[in-house]
Design a binder for these strands. Structure first.
Lengths: 212, 212
DNA sequence: CTACTTTTGTGAATCTTTTCACAAGCAACT
DNA sequence: AGTTGCTTGTGAAAAGATTCACAAAAGTAG
């Protein structure tokens, strides 16, 4: 039951949750830290340590009850509710995200979409109409969006980040390849494809001979 | 000049590289660890330690020469060359990736695209024709693809991962929300949007009151 | 009720990463 | 050439994360 939680622990919690969903579908009723570890590519001790940050959810000798632990993890991760999301940028990435199936399934509800292309403004995606970025503050406030997904080119990202934050957004998922400057109580998660690819090519290059 | 490089260091190297590109455009000739740190959201000591794993590239009293360090980092990350990429899955995510501008710019060359939808097979994207997943091994070998991007639904991902690896792919960028099982000399980078969103909602929930 | 099996929860030990702090190197100026 | 100002490169210290190892619970069987 500690204070500051490592980022790596949080990511593993997401993983455990995914494994628990699978186990539930397979009809499992209880699960041991050992099995959770195997599915999550980690160790049993790590699983127990991760969970112990938040309380003790298991029964000695038995393991964890699948559906109960699933509920606990959802609560811990803050996804036992719906999050209203503003999608900023209706380009390729924006539209791919909007259509991403896992997305709506898990309590993330896109309540607003913005773009600055006059061609796109006014079109509707599902229930949502694409609005001009000029109306951003207004619409974010009206819809009560709490999260923003920034899927815009790098030069526009910083300004838009500031604006969504000032309109009340509490966290940002950022696809632009820059480090956003926002108040430090506003968490930002970066998704950088280029960075992932570079990590890959580094790993491959390292593996095959020091300097080829 | 050490042995095993932390994953976090590699990600920061990507960041430094991005900052150096910006600096180059701004006409900077040299840069200090201090400035690189500021742009990369880290500390000067961290920058120097990161670089010191690979050699010593700076001049005391002066800093680093922008274009030289840029070249060194590109070499270290293994991106001073072109990587041939097979894109597996021509759905929403696949097509968004294919069109991603930063992507071709930086030495990643999509040499093959696969899908199993008969509607899509035979169409061409730019120079590349979408091929059936049945032809995967053949085409991967012929094109000499070294990296694969898996942008397919979870149930198909494991099998396709095995197949691209057996066809000679050396690393995988995986968008499917499962942990792929591949030989341990084949690096896999996972991009999980759901996990990123969960990390966000966790951070927000934590910040605002322990248990609301 | 006791012995036995299983598996958790957790302090202590180990390993990893980051931060500190400073000698050593380089350029500029006198 | 000597002095000054700046910034790197790096051991050593501190902080952080993971692994170990085992006592404490819980169920089961005799």
């Amino acid at each position: 039951m500690s204070r500051r939680i490592p980022e790596s622990t949080v990511r593993r919690l997401s993983h455990y949750l995914r494994s628990l969903e699978d186990l539930g579908r397979e009809g499992g009723y209880t699960v041991s830290s050992e099995e959770l570890a195997e599915r999550g590519q980690t160790t049993a001790a790590q699983v127990r340590k991760d969970l112990s940050h938040f309380g003790s959810f298991g029964k000695r000798g038995l393991g964890y009850q699948v559906d109960e632990l699933q509920g606990r993890l959802q609560h811990i991760l803050g996804i036992d509710r719906t999050w209203r999301v503003a999608l900023v940028g209706a380009g390729r990435i924006g539209s791919a995200l909007f259509a991403y199936p896992d997305f709506n399934v898990r309590g993330y509800d896109v309540v607003a979409v913005f773009d600055n292309d006059p061609e796109k403004i006014g079109r509707t995606w599902g229930e949502v109409t694409i609005r001009s970025a000029d109306e951003l503050e207004q619409v974010v406030r009206d819809t009560g969006a709490e999260l923003a997904i920034l899927a815009v080119p790098a030069p526009a990202a910083q300004e838009l980040a500031q604006r969504v934050v000032s309109a009340g957004v509490k966290g940002i998922l950022n696809f632009a390849p820059i480090r956003l400057r926002v108040p430090k109580d506003v968490p930002v998660e970066d998704v950088s494809l280029v960075m992932e690819l570079e990590a890959l090519s580094f790993a491959i290059t390292q593996a095959g001979g020091a300097d080829e």
